[in-house]
């Protein structure tokens, strides 16, 4: 997604240092001091994880730490809120995966 470089009222975006990070094994660029959620959206990435059981795609919803939808694994630490975490140089971020549900009856077999 496009960054808002020039804003009619807020002015020009301060020129910030760029940092690089990895998301699901691919390298991306971010601005220093921005959140993981903002950096990923700026790189056009909306899907941050899938629902553990159903596998439906999920992205940011509240962007202020309430909904937990944006939780990702940051430097091997799981369940970190992308919207409240500042991206850092060399950070590795992994999105959540679908978990197996071997004991669950599937619809129609009940």
């Amino acid at each position: 997604m496009t960054r808002i470089i020039d804003h009619a009222i807020l002015g020009k975006l301060d020129s910030l240092k760029k940092v690089s990070f990895q998301f699901n094994g691919k390298s991306y660029e971010a601005y220093e001091h921005e959140t993981v959620a903002a950096a990923l959206l700026a790189n056009g990435i909306r899907q941050l994880r899938v629902h553990e059981e159903s596998g439906t795609p999920r992205g940011i919803y509240c962007n202020i730490g309430h909904c937990m939808e944006c939780r990702v694994t940051v430097n091997h630490q799981p369940n970190v809120r992308a919207c409240l975490t500042k991206v850092e140089e060399g950070m590795t971020i992994e999105s959540g995966r679908r978990h197996p549900t071997p004991l669950k009856k599937t619809e129609g077999l009940q």
Binding site: M1, L13, L41, A42, R46, G59, Y61, N63
Partner: peptide
Amino acid sequence: WTLPGVMSIGAAQVMTNVHRVQAGR
């Protein structure tokens, strides 16, 4: 509403004015 790209209106505000990233096109 669980699809990526659906957000609370406040989320779009923060993305726009604080992070300076467009919520979308």
